[in-house]
């Protein structure tokens, strides 16, 4: 073996100061500065929307702006956003209600029943579904879903009601196909993957010992599901539902393309309605009056408040449960 020379002194060529003293400090400062601008961005989002909307909000008052039912940018310049708030809340919660059991069923199937290859394929589809652009759902909504629903549900129901139960007609509304109900259907389809993915992760996190304990007692598959797995995973499932709700609240294009965009209250089941994101997307580029601009940004501020609460709650839960920590 070769004799090791006595301390040759590669290392004694002392590395430059950036390595010894300042490197870590500079690096961490830069990283901190860049990373924390995300915090600034999130909070700044609320702040700038408030600032931009303050002209309209101040004119109508914080509650007046929220609960006013007249949105008239043309003649009276009166701005109340209640029709949009109502439209957003109704469609989002209804979509959550519709999508939740479906998403949960898909999660249960892939996590517990499906063979590996099938589960993998369905999981891939679910992940893909979350990534499909809103406008693609939208064009499908306009040309496929809305006409289909009109022929199969709206018209028959409307005709039946007109003949047999005329009292219902005002609640059904215009059966043209573009309205609240179509919006809810398309929104439900779009938020399924969020609940499904997180529920599936939560179910997968249930320790094997828990299941085996129950199986060992002679429980059937569903009994194990019901008594052990679902209770254990409920935190993650709930967080998934919150996340889905957050997405529904902010979903813009697909809804705007099928909901008919009318802010005339009262809303009906089939008839046109509107939502907060839709009015922002559709009116901002056409606004002329300063007050109209401000009112639209004000809608954004209120949407921020609602979505912020829902998303903070969902994120907090997810970080606490460590569910879905691997997904974007």
């Amino acid at each position: 073996m070769q004799q090791a020379p006595v301390q040759s002194s590669l290392i004694k060529q002392t590395p430059s100061a950036i390595y010894r003293l300042w490197g870590d400090r500079i690096f961490l400062s830069v990283v901190l500065l860049l990373a924390l601008s995300i915090v600034a961005l999130t909070l700044g989002l609320g702040y700038y929307l408030y600032l931009g909307g303050s002209q309209a909000i101040n004119k109508e008052g914080f509650w007046g702006f929220l609960t006013g039912t007249t949105w008239d940018p043309a003649l009276k310049l009166e701005f109340g956003i209640w029709p949009y708030v109502l439209g957003t809340l109704i469609t989002s919660f209804a979509a959550l209600l519709v999508s939740f059991p479906i998403a949960l069923a898909a999660a249960i199937f892939t996590a517990e029943y499906a063979p590996r290859w099938l589960a993998g394929f369905i999981n891939y589809l679910v992940d893909l579904m979350a990534a499909v652009p809103s406008v693609v759902y939208g064009i499908w909504g306009i040309f496929v879903l809305a006409p289909f629903l009109r022929e199969v549900i709206y018209m028959p129901t409307f005709l039946w009601a007109a003949e047999k139960a005329p009292g219902l007609v005002p609640f059904l509304g215009n059966p043209a196909g573009y309205g609240m109900f179509t919006g809810v259907v398309i929104l439900s389809s779009m938020i399924i993957p969020f609940t499904a993915a997180l529920s599936r992760d939560a179910i997968a996190l249930v320790p094997a010992a828990q299941r085996e304990g129950a199986y060992a007692l002679g429980a059937t598959r569903w009994e194990v599901m019901q008594t052990v797995i679902l209770p254990y995973a409920r935190g993650g499932i709930f967080a998934g539902a919150m996340l889905a709700l957050g997405r529904a609240l902010g979903e813009t294009m697909a809804v705007a393309m099928v909901i008919g965009n009318s802010n005339v209250l009262p809303y009906t089941l089939f008839g046109p309605a509107s939502t907060m994101p839709a009015v922002i997307a559709l009116e901002l580029k056409e606004a002329v009056e300063d007050l109209h601009y401000s009112a639209i940004i004000g809608v954004g501020f209120y949407l921020f408040l609602i979505a912020f609460i829902v998303n903070v709650a969902a994120s907090y839960l997810l970080n606490k449960l460590k569910v879905g920590s691997q997904r974007a």
Partner: peptide
Amino acid sequence: VGIRKKSLLDEAAERALRQ
């Protein structure tokens, strides 16, 4: 740590691997 000279690195690598 910034040592770039190939001859130095080669020499150090061989010595360390032999050791």
